[in-house]
Computed example of a mutant assay.
Amino acid sequence: MGIADPAAGSAPMALAAQADRDENSAHALARITENRRRALNQLLTPPAVGSARTSSPCRPAQ
């Protein structure tokens, strides 16, 4: 369910609320943010040339 799931969204929101006062929370939030950014970039990376994902659905890959 992602961030809409209360169990998954509560911890990052609590860290964000404490990050300006607590150094450990700020570091944890930075690590989570970097991890999520890296995961998103992997999803957005174009596939390698010649992979099955680049073939047309109307034509099989050669």
Results as ranks from 00 to 15, higher is better:
residue 2 G to N: 05
residue 3 I to Q: 15
residue 5 D to C: 07
residue 5 D to T: 02
residue 5 D to P: 13
residue 6 P to G: 15
residue 6 P to T: 09
residue 6 P to Y: 11
residue 7 A to R: 15
residue 7 A to G: 01
residue 7 A to E: 11
residue 8 A to R: 12
residue 9 G to F: 13
residue 9 G to P: 14
residue 10 S to V: 05
residue 10 S to K: 12
residue 11 A to L: 10
residue 11 A to Q: 03
residue 12 P to V: 01
residue 12 P to M: 08
residue 13 M to V: 05
residue 13 M to Y: 05
residue 13 M to S: 01
residue 14 A to L: 10
residue 14 A to I: 05
residue 15 L to N: 05
residue 15 L to H: 06
residue 16 A to Y: 13
residue 17 A to G: 15
residue 17 A to S: 11
residue 18 Q to A: 07
residue 18 Q to G: 06
residue 18 Q to M: 03
residue 19 A to M: 02
residue 19 A to L: 03
residue 19 A to F: 14
residue 19 A to N: 10
residue 20 D to R: 05
residue 21 R to T: 13
residue 21 R to W: 04
residue 21 R to N: 12
residue 21 R to S: 12
residue 22 D to G: 01
residue 22 D to S: 06
residue 23 E to Q: 14
residue 25 S to Y: 08
residue 25 S to E: 01
residue 25 S to F: 14
residue 25 S to W: 13
residue 26 A to S: 07
residue 26 A to T: 01
residue 26 A to W: 01
residue 27 H to D: 03
residue 27 H to V: 02
residue 27 H to L: 15
residue 27 H to I: 03
residue 27 H to A: 07
residue 28 A to H: 00
residue 29 L to H: 09
residue 30 A to H: 09
residue 30 A to T: 14
residue 30 A to Y: 07
residue 30 A to R: 12
residue 31 R to P: 05
residue 31 R to S: 12
residue 31 R to G: 06
residue 31 R to F: 10
residue 32 I to R: 07
residue 33 T to Y: 14
residue 33 T to F: 09
residue 34 E to H: 09
residue 35 N to Q: 10
residue 35 N to V: 04
residue 35 N to L: 11
residue 35 N to C: 04
residue 36 R to A: 07
residue 36 R to I: 08
residue 36 R to M: 02
residue 37 R to A: 03
residue 37 R to P: 12
residue 37 R to F: 05
residue 37 R to Y: 11
residue 38 R to Y: 01
residue 38 R to W: 03
residue 38 R to M: 02
residue 39 A to W: 15
residue 39 A to H: 06
residue 39 A to T: 07
residue 39 A to F: 12
residue 40 L to Y: 11
residue 40 L to M: 12
residue 40 L to T: 02
residue 40 L to N: 04
residue 40 L to Q: 04
residue 41 N to D: 08
residue 41 N to R: 05
residue 41 N to W: 00
residue 42 Q to T: 00
residue 42 Q to G: 08
residue 42 Q to I: 00
residue 42 Q to C: 05
residue 42 Q to E: 06
residue 43 L to V: 10
residue 44 L to K: 02
residue 44 L to E: 07
residue 45 T to W: 00
residue 45 T to P: 08
residue 45 T to Y: 00
residue 45 T to L: 03
residue 45 T to F: 04
residue 46 P to I: 00
residue 46 P to D: 01
residue 46 P to N: 02
residue 47 P to V: 05
residue 47 P to T: 04
residue 47 P to L: 00
residue 47 P to W: 12
residue 48 A to Q: 04
residue 48 A to D: 09
residue 48 A to C: 00
residue 48 A to W: 01
residue 48 A to E: 01
residue 49 V to F: 10
residue 49 V to L: 06
residue 49 V to M: 06
residue 49 V to E: 11
residue 49 V to H: 09
residue 50 G to D: 13
residue 50 G to E: 11
residue 50 G to C: 02
residue 51 S to E: 08
residue 51 S to I: 03
residue 51 S to T: 15
residue 52 A to M: 10
residue 52 A to F: 12
residue 52 A to T: 07
residue 52 A to Y: 12
residue 52 A to S: 11
residue 53 R to T: 09
residue 53 R to I: 00
residue 53 R to F: 10
residue 53 R to L: 09
residue 53 R to S: 10
residue 53 R to D: 10
residue 54 T to G: 05
residue 55 S to K: 09
residue 55 S to N: 14
residue 55 S to F: 14
residue 55 S to R: 15
residue 56 S to D: 09
residue 57 P to I: 00
residue 57 P to F: 15
residue 58 C to V: 11
residue 61 A to W: 11
residue 61 A to L: 14
residue 61 A to I: 04
residue 61 A to C: 15
residue 61 A to T: 10
